Amino acid sequence: MDIENLMSPEGMRAFTDEQRDTLTTDASQVRQLALIIKARIAQTQIDGDKPWSAKLRAYKVGKQFEQVAKQLEKAAAGCEGINASYKKDVLEVPARRERALERKEQRAEQKMLAKARAKHGITGALAENAHALNAGTGAANPQVNAPAAPPAPQYVNPAPFPMPQAPAQSSSGQISDHFPDISLEAS
């Protein structure tokens, strides 16, 4: 067997097809043998057999043949798995990596475009707000233009009670000046 030919996609496909076909043919032959041997054992009587003993022996031997046939079919399926795994994990890897790199670059480009659009939008909004604040006119945006303050209320009598005059001296004096009834002496 040429290993270089085996490592090509066509060579691996041919090898796995050949092995699969061989194993499935063997499995079908084992099943046919199982039927023939079961029938022959079931009809062979041994001295001292009960009526069902021959069929039980045939069933036991036939079961072993069935297990062999199942294992051969499983091996044939494994050959198909070899080819699928070879294609997926060896042959298609470079193309998958290239597609992944292209998608990554596209995402990076889309992110950069989105950032540029957002930056342009923010810059435009800030310039518009600054222009509105500097010009004194602009859109009626409560975040840009503060609402006008309500007018101050007009009182009829602005000072109904005379305000106390501040003392001429700057110190506040003694506490007894403010509260004459308090005695501060120790008793």
Rank of each mutant, 00 (worst) to 15 (best):
I36E: 08
I36R: 10
I36G: 02
I36F: 10
I36M: 11
I36W: 05
I37V: 15
I37T: 09
K38R: 15
K38Y: 01
K38F: 04
A39H: 08
A39S: 10
A39V: 00
A39M: 08
I41F: 00
I41K: 01
I41A: 01
I41H: 02
A42G: 13
A42M: 03
A42H: 04
Q43Y: 01
Q43P: 00
Q43A: 11
Q43E: 08
T44G: 02
T44S: 12
T44P: 01
T44E: 05
T44L: 09
Q45E: 07
Q45F: 06
I46P: 03
I46W: 10
I46T: 09
I46M: 12
I46D: 05
D47H: 11
D47S: 11
D47W: 14
D47M: 12
D47K: 13
D47A: 15
G48Q: 14
G48S: 08
G48E: 12
D49L: 06
D49G: 03
D49C: 08
K50G: 15
P51D: 14
P51V: 07
P51W: 12
W52S: 15
W52V: 13
W52G: 12
W52P: 05
S53A: 15
S53W: 05
S53I: 03
S53Y: 06
A54W: 08
K55T: 07
K55P: 02
L56S: 12
L56E: 14
L56Q: 12
R57H: 06
R57L: 03
A58N: 04
A58P: 00
A58F: 03
Y59D: 15
Y59Q: 14
Y59R: 04
K60M: 14
K60Q: 14
K60Y: 08
V61M: 05
V61D: 06
V61H: 02
G62W: 04
K63D: 11
K63C: 07
K63L: 15
K63W: 02
Q64P: 02
Q64R: 13
Q64E: 13
F65L: 04
F65N: 02
F65A: 08
F65I: 04
E66K: 06
Q67F: 11
Q67T: 11
V68Y: 04
V68K: 07
V68R: 08
A69R: 02
K70G: 12
K70Q: 10
K70P: 02
K70I: 07
Q71V: 05
